[in-house]
Design a protein around this nucleic acid. Structure first.
Length: 421
RNA sequence: GUGAGUGUAGCUCAGUUGGCAGAGCACCAGACUGUGGCUCUGGCUGUCGUGGGUUCGAUCCCCAUCACUCACCCCA
């Protein structure tokens, strides 16, 4: 029996868990501002959903999914990404989805069986958002603005936004042909991986970090030069909507996405100099996905996902944990435990974070604990005071104390709590 | 899936050219009678990742294995 977590999985303990809750709250708040409502989909889906949506030949589907056969013989997969389930849910509950545009956000874990490393886990978490039912470049700009606003509010500095267009089924084939023949001519200059990729997924070659490949593809044809009229108009529409919203970005015609369903707009928020896992958040348009999944009508859509672990990593350690208690009850003799405990419950009930020691430790030790808990007030329950129905009320910051009736002490603490609310 | 590095107390790490395992922090207790933070004193804590091998003897050398970390790949 080992007590270690499964490879690539992480326990999130205090105080870190508080940072998670805080960030989730911030994301929710921003989502609501931009008109997105929460959707919660199951962690398990039929394997086929991801195979079709993400792409049979992507790494995710080929070798990274947690797939198993359940007791009824059906092949199920623990979700490796969030978009496909949301689209599935939308198509399934079309009638309940409401008026277009339908905008959803989600928060939750994703699972991919990869080799863990910095900023990459097997169970990782994403904040995501998807907007359905509109082709408009404004929808793209809106999603980017939401993401941008959230990242800024989270305190992330030094991010840059890169955007690109991957075209659509009208214009992309021509580009892929042009790129393929360009790469064929340069074959000798490419790294081994890229020679292999050139045939199968030529776009990937543009994303290669190997020096020789970067050089070889320096003057490769740009997708942006191949966009058909509607795609070009759309791309320019996104650019001007972003520009007029005051959001800075740069074009990156070499940007590639790992999932097959993307069309037209793609974007990434990257941190320069962060190394291998420098993408904090990314997204794009996927107008064809609904039909790929068997939907009757075309449902244009745009979405993104934020890597929560990566974001937290970039935000740094954050502030230290605050006080764990506001008031500490010190018991001079075990005989007074029942009385102290009853008072502690009263404090909890009125919202005061109170703590005490149940182990019968020395008064000195209890004070040490009180100090460490950060409590600003200590109530001492002693025999003499108890005869008078009183306790010692000690202000830990000033080091002053007085004997007052127990009722008064409790009321004082509870009143103070109310004032601070 | 490939490569490299690391694995010793709760934490950070030292260590032995192979001979009963250490420090700091943390924790516990005490420094006159029921009072914290500072200081001082004392104390507790280890399958030296796991399994084999070499050896009189292995935490140290060798092999394997697992885990972690970083990089590649890929991606959030």
């Amino acid at each position: 029996m080992t007590l270690a977590t499964v490879r690539g999985m992480k326990d999130i303990l205090p105080p870190e868990s508080a940072r998670w809750t805080e960030l989730e709250g911030l994301f929710r708040a921003h989502a609501v501002r931009y008109g997105f409502l929460e959707i919660r989909t199951p962690l398990l889906e039929r394997t086929e959903l991801f195979a079709r949506a993400v792409g049979e030949t992507t790494d995710i589907v080929e070798k990274e999914m947690y797939t198993f056969t359940d007791r009824s013989g059906e092949s199920l997969t623990v979700r490796p990404e969030g978009t496909a389930p949301v689209v599935r849910a939308l198509l399934n509950h079309r009638a309940d989805a409401g008026e277009w545009p339908a905008r959803f956000f989600y928060i939750g874990p994703m699972f991919r069986h990869e080799r863990p490393q910095k900023g990459r886990l097997r169970q990782f978490h994403q904040f995501g958002a998807e907007a359905f039912g509109t082709d408009s470049p404004y929808a793209d700009a809106e999603a980017v603005a939401f993401l941008h606003g959230f990242l800024a509010a989270a305190g992330l500095a030094g991010v840059s936004l890169e955007i690109n267009s991957l075209g659509d089924p009208e214009c992309r084939p021509a580009y892929l042909d042009a790129l393929a023949s360009f790469l064929a001519a340069k074959e000798g200059e490419l790294c081994d991986d890229c020679r292999r990729r050139a045939g199968r997924n030529p776009l990937r070659v543009l994303d290669c970090k190997a020096e020789r490949c970067v050089r070889a593809t320096a003057d490769a044809p740009s997708i942006l030069d191949f966009l058909c009229g509607p795609c070009r108009d759309h791309f320019h529409g996104v650019e001007s909507a972003l520009a007029s919203s005051g959001i800075l970005f740069s074009r990156n015609p070499r940007m590639v996405r790992g999932l097959d369903y993307y069309r037209r707009t793609t974007f990434e928020f990257v941190i320069p100099g962060m190394g291998a896992q420098n993408t904090v958040a990314a997204g794009g348009r996927y107008d064809g996905l609904a039909e790929m999944l068997g939907g009757r009508e075309r449902v244009p859509a745009i979405g993104f996902a934020v890597g929560v672990e990566r974001l937290l990593m970039l935000l740094g350690e954050g502030r230290a944990a605050g006080p764990s208690a506001e008031a500490y009850l010190v018991v001079a003799t075990p005989a007074l435990l029942p009385e102290a405990f009853r008072r502690k419950m009263e404090l909890s009930a009125c919202g005061v974070r109170a703590d005490m020691d149940y182990e019968g430790r020395s008064v000195k030790s209890q004070f040490r604990r009180a100090d460490r808990s950060g409590a600003r007030v200590v109530l001492v329950f002693g025999e003499d005071e108890a005869h008078r129905g009183a306790v010692v009320y000690r202000d830990m910051e000033r080091g002053l104390q007085e004997e007052i009736p127990a009722e008064t002490a409790i009321r004082r603490l509870c009143d103070r709590e109310k004032k601070e609310e």
